[in-house]
Design a protein around this nucleic acid. Structure first.
Length: 879
RNA sequence: GGUCGCUUAGCUCAGUUGGGAGAGCGCCUGCCUUACAAGCAGGAUGUCAUAGGUUCAAGUCCUAUAGUGACCACCA
């Protein structure tokens, strides 16, 4: 035996070595085992363009804690990893890279371009995976998936075809969000509305056949080129007489009708609205109601098209200014007003999106969301914390049809084919040889790809082999919990739920555990532009992964944001150092690996710590089951530091230092037993250091990863000893307090006299004599049963059921001591008062639980006794 | 406009079903005591935002108000 640990744990050396060993041994790899219950988490796939940030670190740590706990509890625990192809992000990145080399994607063509992207993915796409490994995440890497791998492609095609046949996917010409920068459609969820300081321009149109005008306001004058009507509220007496007449749009000289529609609010602006169905969602609807023509004025890059020769090719913002000028020249400009509004921008490139009419593919949502709503209402899907269920419902209940086609090359290509001859649409996983309608052979595949989220939505089951009816799918699916941040509920969670219900008839997971964001120390979001981001890898390098993980989980509850502080990491590193050193201490004293256990030998102190550990095990297990990871780690932290290190180890030292002490062996056994179990509870949070320590105190090579989770054990419930030791602790604390107040240096030993008439107390003290010598620096402990035997030159401290005396020392100031005792007296009096008041309250006595009343009564006696003692002391010193 | 958070010690935050207010950091005092100064011992600090209500009992439940933040919708 006799192993030794270095003075400090060295994370940078140990972590990689340990993780490598775990991988070599295949501890995280999971095979179907019908004898074991599965526990499955499918990890949210990070983008291949991504770098590990604090959000990932937090997200993966939570999942790893759950998985490691379940693994130790005997579940077949699978944490399934993978990455997302991130269509737009990746495509933009590669386009930029090629641009630097002077290559345009249009020039090299689709196939060649995709080769470049795959190359890029091979080089950079796995970076983030390696970073997850640094976090110590216990994934089954042999199952790693990619949203664009062939299996997932199969799943995507299957879903597309099924939904098309069912009529849930359709092609339609509708107003969509268009990004002129990325030149692709985007979904509603990808549009960010940001506050903007803009203008309201007021113009007027001459009403034909009169000499009157209609004045209206717009924030986007360039869309005037596409006006096909002007609208007023049907009940607006100001304008009623004009309904049915026409105005002429200058510049394009288009005659358009004045129509009435409820959509127009009378008291907003001038109560007159220009209608541009091709460039505004509301106008589009008005247009449909009134059968208005749709005139598109813009090219895909946001420039003006040939709707008007004079403006052709101008950028939308240049056109805006020119139109304002033109209206001024024509005398039809009224005024310009500063206003605050919001503009929709593309979340990826921040470019202002343009609503445009496009023929695109859509998923019909109204029917598909119904089961997702139903399951939630039936409490089959649980959000933690539950308030996030509202966000989920809000999205489902207000979902518009989902535009899924993207004008990008990197992604799942839409499995739709067009016959050049008869324009038939054929949806199929294989390219048809000839048209099913006309037999023509000029067949082309749709050029577009699918929204990234279309494949992410299938992630919980596609990764397990769906659409094949695989054994994995039957065994591991549905998964147990999804862990994600709140900002992605509407993007992803809702889509996974309705997709899973539609395709597999099952919820993809039972619980959705939501966490918050990691902000900087001033509470700001970490962002590239602010440059305030903290790289988790830097933290790991400085303090180690375990310290980072503890920092992210501790002092925080589900769903809430947290701030990152370096100080917090340091505190956690210090805690781990504490655990490390406690182990060193035990190893110093441990001659043989396995001290023998016999229950009869256990001393009260041993029983106390074992009993405390026992409660801790139960608490922590329940807390983790309820996803209260922050509270659980706090309990572990306090137990190890306060109960185990500060008290138990200190209490046990005299027994260890005396090799002839008959209780020495059981002390070592208890030390080791409690340490190992604490380590196990700590392991999911701090996997590396716990593994290192676990191995150092075992003779045989073993791993904590596959060790058994500690179990609550009725054998180790010791209520009496818990109470007794608490009495000792209180006494020791009081003595320490008194010594500090009296400025007695620790090295100076002082006689301690206990006076008590309670046999129980004196017995406890007798049993614990050594604690007073070591913990309270007593030279000797004398137990008496009568105050009269105490001389006047003693200071005292009162405990429940007795008083402890120490000889006066030269520096003691009687006045000061009396002051202290009087303070004590006041405190006790107010306590006695409180308890008496409570117990004389009829309502309390009749309605409060019996247990509580008993406890209060006990306190009443205790306080009264103690107060009596204090009064006695005051009397003694006042003589 | 709608929904939802948050407000607890100087700072950052816990406080899981209502039952005498907690941690870490910081601050003050004393200690290099043979595991640990990344440490040990002791100490000070709170009208739990405000006002009502429910209850024997409220930081915890309900209502309103204020401050603050997030999300959603609208913005001709």
């Amino acid at each position: 035996m006799k192993k030794e640990l270095d003075k400090n744990f060295n994370p940078s050396e140990a972590e990689d070595r340990i993780y490598k060993n775990w991988l070599n041994k295949g501890y995280f790899n999971v095979k179907i085992d019908k004898a074991k219950k599965p526990y499955t988490i499918v990890m949210p796939p990070p983008n291949i363009t991504g770098q590990l940030h604090m959000g990932h670190a937090l997200n993966s740590t939570i999942q790893d804690i759950l998985i490691r706990t379940k693994r130790m509890q005997g579940y077949n625990a699978l944490l399934l990893p993978g990455t997302d192809h991130a269509s737009i992000s990746t495509e933009v990145k590669v386009v930029e890279k090629l641009a630097k080399e002077g290559i345009k994607k249009e020039d090299i063509g689709r196939e060649e371009f995709l080769k470049h992207v795959w190359d890029w993915k091979e080089t950079y796409g796995n970076k983030i995976v390696e970073q997850f490994k640094k976090m110590g995440i216990s994934c089954d890497w042999s199952r790693q998936r990619f949203t664009l791998d062939s299996g997932l492609n199969k799943a995507v095609e299957e879903v597309f075809i099924k939904l098309y046949k069912k009529g849930y996917i359709y092609k339609g010409k509708k107003l969509v969000n268009w990004c002129p920068q990325c030149k692709t459609t985007i979904s509603d969820a990808e549009v960010n509305y940001i506050d903007n300081e803009g203008y309201f321009w007021y113009f007027k149109y001459p009403i034909n056949g009169t000499d009157e005008f209609l004045t209206f306001a717009t924030t986007r004058p360039e869309t005037i080129l596409g006006d096909t009507s002007i609208a007023v509220n049907p009940n607006d007496i100001r304008y009623k007489k004009f309904i049915g007449m026409t105005v002429t749009v200058p510049i394009v000289n288009r005659v358009i009708p004045i129509i009435a529609d409820d959509y127009v609010e009378m008291d907003f602006g001038t109560g007159v609205v220009k209608i541009t169905p091709a460039h505004d969602p509301n106008d589009f609807e008005v247009g449909e109601r009134h059968n208005l023509p749709i005139i598109n004025v813009m090219n895909d890059d946001g420039s003006i098209n040939d709707v008007c020769e004079a403006y052709k090719g101008l950028d939308r913002y240049e056109a805006r200014e020119k139109i304002v000028e033109e209206f001024k020249n024509l005398g039809l400009f009224v005024k310009k007003e500063e206003i605050k509004n919001s503009v929709g921008t593309h979340e990826r490139c921040n470019c202002v999106i343009e609503p445009l009419i496009k023929e695109q593919w859509f998923v019909k949502m109204d029917e598909m969301v119904k089961p997702a709503i139903e399951e939630f209402k039936n409490n089959n899907l649980r959000f933690i914390p539950d308030r996030f269920g509202k966000i989920y419902m809000n999205w489902l209940e207000n979902m518009h049809d989902w535009c899924i086609s993207r004008q990008l090359w990197w992604g799942h290509r839409i499995p739709a084919y067009y016959c050049d001859d008869c324009h038939e649409i054929i949806v199929s996983s294989e390219k048809p040889i000839k048209c099913s309608k006309c037999g023509g052979t000029n067949i082309k595949q749709d050029e577009d790809t699918l929204d990234t989220w279309f494949s992410s939505a299938l992630w919980p089951f596609s990764t397990l082999g769906w659409p094949e009816n695989t054994e994995d799918l039957n065994y591991f699916y549905p998964t147990d919990v999804l862990v994600t941040a709140y900002d992605i509920i509407f993007f992803w969670v809702v889509r996974m739920v309705f997709s899973a219900l539609e395709q597999t008839n099952q919820l993809p997971f039972k619980d959705v555990l939501i966490h918050g964001l990691v902000r900087d120390s001033e509470g700001r979001k970490m962002s590239k532009s602010l440059g305030n981001g903290i790289n988790p890898l830097d933290v790991i390098e400085k303090y180690g992964t375990d310290a980072l993980r503890l920092t992210l989980i501790g002092g925080n509850s589900p769903g809430n944001d947290q701030r990152f502080y370096w100080e917090k990491v340091e505190v956690n590193r210090n805690f781990l150092n504490k655990v490390w050193n406690a182990t060193r201490f035990i190893l110093m004293n441990l001659e043989e690996a396995s001290p023998k256990y016999s229950k009869e030998d256990l001393t009260p102190a041993d029983k106390w710590i074992l009993s405390k550990l026992n409660s801790l095990i139960m608490e922590v297990t329940n807390l983790i089951d309820n996803y209260e990871l922050g509270i659980a780690i706090q309990k572990i932290y306090d137990f190890i530091w306060e109960y185990y290190c500060d008290w138990y180890i200190e209490m046990v030292k005299p027994r260890l230092y005396n090799k002839n002490d008959p209780t020495r062996n059981i002390a070592l056994w208890t030390l080791k037993e409690v340490l190992i179990n604490s380590l196990k509870l700590l392991h999911p949070y701090a996997p590396f250091i716990t593994e290192e320590i676990f191995n150092s105190i075992q003779d045989e090579e073993d791993t904590i990863v596959l060790s058994n989770w500690p179990k609550y054990n009725k054998e180790f419930v010791f209520e009496k000893e818990e109470k007794d030791i608490e009495i000792i602790k209180t006494a020791v604390k009081n003595i320490r307090y008194l010594r500090a107040e009296m400025n007695v240096v620790p090295s100076r030993k002082v006689k301690t006299i206990l006076v008590t008439q309670e046999e129980n107390i004196s017995n406890i003290f007798k049993d614990s004599e050594s604690f007073f010598k070591t913990l309270a620096y007593s030279s000797e402990l004398i137990i008496k049963d009568n105050n009269d035997q105490i001389d006047n030159d003693y200071v005292s401290v009162v405990i429940s059921g007795g008083a402890i005396y120490m000889p006066f020392l030269e520096l003691v100031d009687i006045e000061k001591e009396l002051l202290r005792l009087n303070k004590e007296k006041e405190k006790l009096e107010s306590e006695v008062n409180r308890v008496n008041k409570k117990l004389s309250n009829e309502g309390f006595v009749s309605k409060a639980p019996q247990k509580l009343i008993e406890a209060e009564k006990e306190k009443q006696i205790k306080y009264e006794k103690t107060l009596e003692e204090v009064l006695e002391q005051i009397k003694r010193l006042s003589k």
